[in-house]
């Protein structure tokens, strides 16, 4: 395996436990998830203990310990989305991608997760694909949104 370089995280954010969250965020931005060997290396080269880093990584819902798809789909499960039928769009995403929540398609293109609230409540139900938000979801809008990201 290639040498893992974690110097940029430690140099960029600091070597004490105060920096745990920004370091994990930076790793996740680079890798799309938190690879265990990278986390281990961070602990070796900083003052952050393994138990602390793992504790933080598993507390916050943003952090993922398994790889996400190239296109990360976050379906909003906020109150407004719930009363406006988010459950139907969740079924549509699952059906059209053939995966469940917290899974990734076999080709690695798409992963599905639900999030608490994206704060675009007046366009409910909404979904965030990577960093773009789409509102007014229906099963046909789910189809056209997925098509935009290359789903055939």
């Amino acid at each position: 395996m290639a040498q893992i370089n974690v110097e940029k995280y430690i140099a960029g954010y600091g070597r004490t436990k105060e920096s745990a969250i920004p370091i994990l965020q930076a790793i996740q931005t680079d890798y799309g998830y938190l690879p265990m060997d990278v986390l281990g290396k961070v602990c070796e080269e900083s003052e952050i203990t393994k138990s602390h880093l793992y504790g933080v990584a598993t507390f916050y819902s943003q952090f993922k310990l398994t790889p996400k798809g190239k296109n990360a789909i976050k379906i909003c499960k906020g109150t407004a989305c719930h009363v406006k039928g988010a459950d139907v769009s969740i079924v549509a995403f699952k059906d059209q991608l053939g995966i469940n929540i917290d899974q990734t398609t076999e080709n690695g293109e798409f992963s599905l997760e639900t999030v608490a609230c994206l704060g675009c409540c007046s366009l409910a139900p909404v979904v965030m694909v990577n960093e773009d938000v789409y509102g007014g979801l229906s099963s046909s809008k789910v189809r056209s949104t997925l098509k935009k990201y290359g789903k055939e």
Binding site: S19, I21, G55, F59, S61, Q62, A116
Partner: peptide
């Protein structure tokens, strides 16, 4: 700026402080 990492409880002020300190919230 400190970016949260997805935990509702961190809206509570002592949990928010713990989060800025790099702890579980």
């Amino acid at each position: 700026i400190k970016e949260g990492a997805g935990a509702f409880v961190c809206g509570e002020e002592t949990a928010l402080i713990a989060s800025i300190e790099g702890e579980r919230g």
